[in-house]
Amino acid sequence: MCKGLSSLPSSCLERAKGMRVKLSHLAEIHHKQKVQDGKMLQDLETLLSNKIGLQAFRGFLRSEFSEENLEFWLACEDYRVSSSDLQKIKASSIYSQFIHPDAPLEVNLDAETREALLSVTDSPCADTFDEAQQRIYSLMAKDSFPRFLRSHHCMDAIKAF
């Protein structure tokens, strides 16, 4: 017969209570971050907007040798909020770092998207990388993110809250 919780050492009970508090706090934060402007956000978007989650996801992608996807997405976010005089420099850097066929951190884009980017790198605007960024985001959401949720990187991030 089960003797119930009273047979467990008090240190185990205290740890369980602590984990319950952390998990409920994480669920509360997650819920608050999901609701924005009356619409639900994608879970990956929520993760990317959280410093601890972003670091955990970066560590996971590094372990899978696909960190370039996140780095490209972040570079595009930085590019989007840059002043127009910096955009040409940053566009060139993004192209040479992530888009060019021999780029050190080449991301997996279809030829059509790659060619479209090449044609506008001389005269970039705020939305130059939007389509490519969305393709990489979709790739991470459908491929990397589900594996991340099952990884120890995710569990470590939950414990950090």
Rank of each mutant, 00 (worst) to 15 (best):
F60P: 08
F60S: 04
L61Y: 01
L61D: 01
R62W: 03
R62E: 07
R62G: 03
S63V: 09
S63M: 10
S63K: 11
E64T: 03
E64Q: 11
E64D: 00
F65S: 13
F65E: 08
F65I: 06
F65R: 11
S66Y: 07
S66G: 14
E67S: 12
E67W: 06
E68L: 10
E68F: 09
E68Q: 14
N69Q: 03
N69Y: 05
L70C: 08
L70R: 08
L70S: 06
L70N: 04
L70W: 09
L70H: 06
E71D: 15
E71Y: 13
E71P: 03
F72L: 08
W73D: 00
W73F: 12
L74Y: 01
L74C: 09
A75H: 02
C76F: 03
C76E: 00
D78P: 01
D78V: 09
Y79H: 05
Y79K: 05
R80T: 13
R80Q: 08
R80I: 09
R80L: 06
R80F: 10
V81E: 12
S82K: 06
S82Y: 00
S82G: 07
S82I: 02
S83Q: 03
D85E: 11
D85R: 08
D85T: 06
L86D: 15
L86S: 15
Q87T: 04
K88M: 07
K88G: 04
K88Q: 11
I89L: 12
I89T: 07
A91D: 02
A91N: 03
S92T: 13
S93H: 14
S93L: 15
S93V: 15
I94W: 10
Y95S: 03
Y95K: 13
Y95P: 08
Y95M: 13
Q97A: 09
Q97C: 10
Q97E: 10
F98C: 04
F98H: 07
H100N: 12
H100S: 12
D102A: 11
D102E: 15
D102N: 13
A103E: 09
P104Q: 12
P104R: 15
P104L: 13
L105C: 14
E106C: 12
E106H: 10
V107H: 09
V107P: 12
N108M: 10
N108C: 14
N108L: 12
L109R: 04
L109P: 02
L109V: 00
D110G: 11
D110Y: 04
D110L: 08
A111Y: 00
T113D: 03
T113K: 10
R114E: 00
E115T: 02
E115P: 01
E115N: 06
A116N: 13
A116M: 14
A116G: 11
A116C: 12
L117M: 04
S119E: 02
T121G: 00
D122M: 03
D122A: 07
D122W: 03
P124T: 08
P124Q: 04
P124D: 02
C125K: 15
C125V: 14
C125Y: 10
C125G: 10
A126Y: 05
A126E: 02
T128L: 07
T128C: 14
D130L: 14
E131N: 04
E131L: 11
E131C: 03
E131T: 08
A132M: 13
Q133D: 00
Q133A: 14
Q133F: 08
R135H: 11
R135S: 09
R135K: 15
R135D: 01
I136R: 14
S138E: 07
S138Q: 13
L139F: 12
M140R: 10
